[in-house]
């Protein structure tokens, strides 16, 4: 049988890859993908622990909530990225260094 440790190991690896992407990438969309990877690592943790709570389903239900939150985050973040692109003609976060006025 697979132990809980193995799932958490995969989730740690995903989280670190996401962290690396957020720090190094110079494109807002790729940074967003890094954030999604980290969120997915967290959801994997919830689901892995939820395996042992099949009566109240705490892990599963909150994994569902986290997925919905991630979808909402992505929608808002992409709208912001499109606006930033319209104003600056680039989505490199290093070059975006002034406010609206």
């Amino acid at each position: 049988m697979i132990s809980l440790n193995d799932f958490l190991m995969v989730s740690i690896a995903l989280f670190c890859i996401g962290l690396y992407m957020i720090i190094t990438k110079r494109n807002a969309i790729q940074i967003l993908i890094g954030i999604e990877l980290m969120l997915n690592a967290a959801i994997l943790n919830l689901v892995a622990f939820g395996k042992y709570d099949k009566i109240l389903n705490g892990g599963d239900v909150f994994a569902l909530f986290a997925i919905v939150l991630a979808a909402a985050t992505t929608a808002v973040a992409l709208a912001i990225i499109l606006n930033v692109y319209k104003k600056y003609r680039t989505i490199d976060p290093d070059k975006i260094n002034s406010l609206k006025d």
Binding site: I2, F7, V10, N40, I43, L44, V47, A48, G50, K51, K54, G59, D60, A63, L64, I67
Partner: peptide, 13 residues
């Protein structure tokens, strides 16, 4: 990841 969730017995997720 969806496959891993199935292995955690969380098919709906």
């Amino acid at each position: 990841l969806a496959g891993l969730y199935v292995l955690c017995l969380a098919d709906f997720v």
